[in-house]
Design a protein around this nucleic acid. Structure first.
Length: 415
RNA sequence: GCGGUGGUAGCUCAGCUGGUAGAGCAGGGGACUGUGGAUCCCCGGGUCGCGGGUUCGAGUCCCGUCCACCGCCCCA
């Protein structure tokens, strides 16, 4: 045998049940977004590297070491997208979607790529379904975005805690940052190695550190919520008020920061205790559109991790019953069975035509193996009488009926 | 990128201090020639992840490498 080619590390196939689970998660989320009147945007998988450098942040791990980057034949620096927001914003600006003066609600779905060490629920090609609202600073939008995330979790029966926080704006964040930095510098010696590095690069993340010593320091650190300006405070207050009005449960986490540089004001994460990981996360990014060359445009959104949600989905919707049509006899019977199977399929009935030859006993073993719920044998007698035996494999009951009667029965069960 | 565990049949795994690879399940056939999941009998299956080394001899020991999984970093 020739050498076998395998999947690339961190990449994988989704087959059968796994593929159906993938579709179930994505379709469920799409349905909720569609009924909220979000419009789908289908984006390219690659963008110029600088788009991500400028949006996600030059100093983030994603940009520094996790992107799949390459030069195309024209020498352009290109990256496989590590997330979706940057592309949406680029498209929003490039297509001047702001031109009609309204806000825009967009959603996307697809592969993202990060060159990380693979683990369960974390692959180098993974999938996100995300939503973005561009062109409004109304806290109603913040509340609705979080409500949608909550609806998706509920629809999938996934348990997760919604944590929210506000990161403030251009006016108040610098003051907070200053106070935090000062406090942290006083405790520099007690911080873990990683956090000492973060002190220079991204001090906010220290609040999020899992090392016990750092947690203690974080606990007594100044809280962003105490530093919010009037506008941010009111905004945050409104968001929480609306969420309560909607009955969305959440907890406030003053230590919640996000890893991407572009966030401002509202941030939130839906954390699964079972996984110990975040499954949906998002927030506001009021400056990003402008930073990427568009007009000043407040915006916000979230991204849901499809693989992580898949790990938490326990039950898939049932497929409609499967009918196996079994030809029995010779050429004439095979041909009639072929036609009969397609008659059932015309009616939307999930039907398999047996390609197996041989003993009838083997045909029934085959029916079990493929998980059929019903069989219909098409043989000489059946064709003569124009009556076909519809057998329920679970109850083992068999009734002989004209084809159109069988169609009626199966159709009612095929949703 | 760092630390750890593990890769033997389609699947789950056994294989002692190195001595020529096994079980259960699954699969194929038959007992049972127009009605299945049971039982019994028979059968096929493996470059022991890959490459190198030590050795008369390596699934077993050593080195390297790839992959999966766990933790960290990071993140959805």
């Amino acid at each position: 045998m020739a050498e076998k080619v395998k999947t690339v590390r961190g990449f994988r196939d989704l087959i059968g049940e796994e593929a159906r689970k993938y579709r179930y998660v994505v379709d469920t989320a799409r349905g909720i977004l569609e009924r909220n009147n979000f419009e789908e945007i289908i984006l390219p998988t690659v963008e110029y590297t600088k788009l991500f450098a400028r949006s996600i942040g030059e100093a983030t791990d994603i940009v520094e070491k996790e992107m799949f980057t390459f030069q195309d034949k024209g020498g352009r620096d290109i990256a496989l997208r590590p997330e979706g927001t940057a592309g949406v914003v680029r498209a929003y600006i490039e297509n001047k979607l702001y031109a009609d003066g309204t806000y825009k609600k967009l959603y996307y779905e697809g592969s993202m790529f990060r060159h990380e060490r693979p683990q369960k629920g974390r692959y180098r090609e993974f999938h996100q379904i995300g939503a973005e609202v561009l062109g409004t600073s109304n806290p109603l939008a913040d509340a609705e975005i979080i409500k949608i995330a909550d609806d998706i979790l509920k629809a999938l029966k996934v348990d997760a805690t919604i944590e929210i926080n506000s990161l403030g704006c251009k006016k108040c964040r610098p003051k907070y940052r200053e106070a935090l930095l000062q406090y942290l510098k006083e405790h520099r010696e007690e911080l873990c190695e990683d956090c000492q590095r973060r002190l220079e690069r991204n001090p906010l993340r220290i609040l999020d550190c899992k090392v016990e010593g750092c947690k203690l320091i974080a606990k007594n650190a100044p809280k962003i919520t105490d530093y919010l300006c009037e506008e941010c405070k009111t905004h945050h207050q409104k968001v929480k008020e609306y969420l309560k009005a909607l009955g969305v449960e959440f907890v406030e986490n003053p230590y919640l920061v996000r890893g991407l540089d572009y966030y401002s004001k509202t941030v939130f994460e839906c954390v699964s205790e079972e996984l110990g990981k975040t499954v949906i996360a998002g927030g506001r990014y009021d400056y990003l559109v402008e930073e990427l060359g568009g007009p000043p445009t407040p915006a916000l959104g979230f991204a849901a991790g499809v693989e992580r949600l898949m790990l938490l989905v326990k039950e898939l919707p049932k497929r409609p019953p499967l009918v196996l049509v079994i030809p029995f006899g010779g050429d004439r019977e095979r041909e009639e069975a072929l036609k009969l199977a397609h008659r059932l399929r015309e009616e939307g009935i999930r039907t398999e035509l047996s390609y197996r030859e041989g003993k009838i006993r083997k045909q029934f073993e085959f029916a079990n193996k493929i998980g059929a719920d019903y069989t219909i044998v098409v043989g000489e007698n059946e064709l003569k009488e124009e009556l076909f035996p519809l057998k329920n494999l679970h109850t083992r009951e068999e009734i002989r009926l004209p084809l159109e009667e069988i169609v009626k029965i199966l159709k009612t069960q095929s949703g």
